[in-house]
Nucleic acid binder design. Structure first.
Lengths: 346, 346
DNA sequence: TTAGGGTGTGGAACCAGTTCCAGGGTTTGT
DNA sequence: ACAAACCCTGGAACTGGTTCCACACCCTAA
């Protein structure tokens, strides 16, 4: 009854259709060099025998795995942010009949490159054609990947400690202009005392700080950076920043948070102290995570199209695979400030 | 496509080490039938030539892809819940040198099985050994998967419309006992008027409702089901339920939400109406999403170990691959009520 | 001395596809 | 009428590993 169907091969199909094996291959690869009747006969035989070509065998000859790996490094778990990038990679890839492998990696920035233990996917050869690097990326990981000659594209916003001379394909989004526009918006709404809250030792938060500072400078306003000591997390950072913001004289009328989590922490701590957003203080975030719309009022923040990042990474990787000697490129995707409910007109 | 540089093969390594190809293979597979000196010479040659065996070629012979696919169906995006399951699958798999492919699928429950368009991974043969099904699973998808004779394990909490006679490997968690314990906890805290808010047309929410009802019955308390009309989302469902809860006489002192999103919606709507959780009304959720701890006060909810689900799915799939004729099994993982700050002692 | 067992090694055959070349048939050009 | 060009087709050779069998060699026992 439940007999497992014997795996049919092209030789069996060839016999069933009374043609040669080469013809089967030609039909499968839809090369036009097959007459209409022969093609029909072959397709009929394929259907009758339930034949599905073995992907592995083809890949040996083609020297292409038609598969890439999405490698998430140094993340305790797959946050929605990276999950959406992965989704972008997958949806673009599957449209081109490319497959996406998911792997995670944990490493220290101080491990020498040749001592970094790569995940199993990268230890074998021919399993994947290329790599999309996401998560925090330090130079030693890059060196390690280069040492196995694996083409890759990096999601570059979380790249840390890289000199300008570094050359590799990268896709990122525009930290600087994101906060620049957000801050200009606040200024346009009449705000003058605006603080920026984030740990700027992270390069991406530093770039956001720079955007904020630029907007302040343009308007001859004083920039103020708020940090906090020993935060447990970004949310905690935000919570701890609240007190420091409120103790300033004159009291700031608005805060730009380095990301949505800091904004959330701030919002929560402010609310606990009986202050209302945006009535008492306006607030903007960065990243536009899922929770931003859920906050009450919903958070005005800088929107980043995560799917587009994934898609662009995949697109760039495929280009690299087609043209291995092409010069490296860097793409910065635009961000967009979305107005919701946390900024008030002064 | 540009020509890919030819990589070293075992034949070249064999020549370099002055041994036969069989010996190289034996060294690679660490079979003990190789003398110490020969092994050393081979390893040296491998190192010198930078040889990495071609995974594809081995797979043809082994008839194993050492790869499984995590298929997410009918989800607009990869939510943290499923992201963590995926992570569980990956971390367990990579320890066993198995690889995990990510793919997404959208289909209608009413499409006939043979008309469901499977993702590219499943159209080829030999690419993956098995499948882990997550997302909403209707019978027609199961039929479709069975038709291509692909071993699979389903994450069964979101299985819909399946008769009891259905036989397949599944892993799920305990909806019933989750709400049972949560409700008993509320009762233990002195609550008597407890409502349950959810759309129970979803089988999993129905099971949670049953757990709640059981606890109420045990204590001779009346169960009350709160639903709402045309919700846009679970959060919206929760928001719309708030009014219905408050209009009841006597006013309920506690609410069990079908999941954390409903709980969040409820919490927000209650707060807007000037009611405090847990002072005015106690609240418990289900799932223990990331946001639960972030709510203010943090949400008491039923914790589900998502990584464990993923791990168990992978484990079960590997068992199935090793023993294809084994009878189907079903594993229900325990849930745990976690006490945070949304329940008050009456 | 010979038989027997165990260990180590080489390489042909194999897996399931693709590629390519030779050859047959038909059409077109002169 | 004959050659050249073209289309279609069959199948050997190939890809890069694994498997397995034959065989050489060494050691021990009868």
């Amino acid at each position: 009854m439940e007999a497992v169907p014997r795996k049919t091969t092209i030789r069996e199909v060839a016999q069933a259709a009374s043609v040669g094996i080469g013809t089967i291959s030609r039909v499968l690869n839809s090369s036009s060099q097959v007459s209409r009747e022969t093609r029909a006969r072959v397709l009929e035989a394929i259907r009758r025998l339930g034949f599905r070509p073995n992907a592995q065998a083809r890949r040996i000859l083609k020297r292409r795995a038609e598969m890439v790996c999405f490698l998430l490094s140094n993340r305790d778990f797959l946050h929605p942010f990276h999950a959406r990038i992965l989704q972008g990679v997958e949806s673009y890839a599957s449209g081109l009949k490319q497959h996406v492998l998911f792997a995670a990696l944990h490493y220290s920035p101080r491990t020498p490159p040749d001592r970094i233990d790569l995940p199993p996917v990268l230890q074998e050869h021919g399993l994947i054609d290329g790599l999309i690097l996401a998560g925090t990326i330090y130079p030693n990981l890059l060196r390690r990947i280069e040492s196995i000659h694996m083409p890759f594209v990096a999601f570059s916003n979380n790249v840390v400690g890289m000199g300008d001379e570094e050359q590799f394909d990268q896709v990122g989004f525009d930290d600087f202009n994101g906060t620049l526009h957000a801050t200009r918006y606040l200024i346009g709404k009449g705000h003058r005392h605006i603080v920026f809250a984030a740990d700027v030792s992270y390069p991406w938060l530093w770039r956001r700080f720079e955007g904020y500072r630029q907007a302040m400078r343009e308007n001859k306003l004083k920039h103020v950076l708020i940090t906090s000591r020993n935060p447990q997390s970004f949310v905690d950072f935000g919570q701890k920043s609240a007190g420091r913001i409120l103790s300033r004289q004159p009291r700031p009328t608005a805060a730009v948070a380095g990301n949505d989590e800091i904004a959330y922490g701030l919002w929560r701590a402010l609310r606990r102290q009986g202050l209302k957003v945006p009535d008492d203080i306006s607030l903007v975030g960065f990243d536009d995570r899922e929770e931003a719309v859920l906050m009450d009022p919903p958070l005005s923040t800088v929107h980043v199209d995560k799917e587009e990042i994934g898609e662009t990474c995949m697109k760039m990787l495929l280009e690299r695979l087609h043209h291995p000697r092409m010069t490296f490129s860097q793409r910065i995707l635009p961000t967009e400030f979305v107005i919701r409910g946390t900024v008030r007109q002064l």
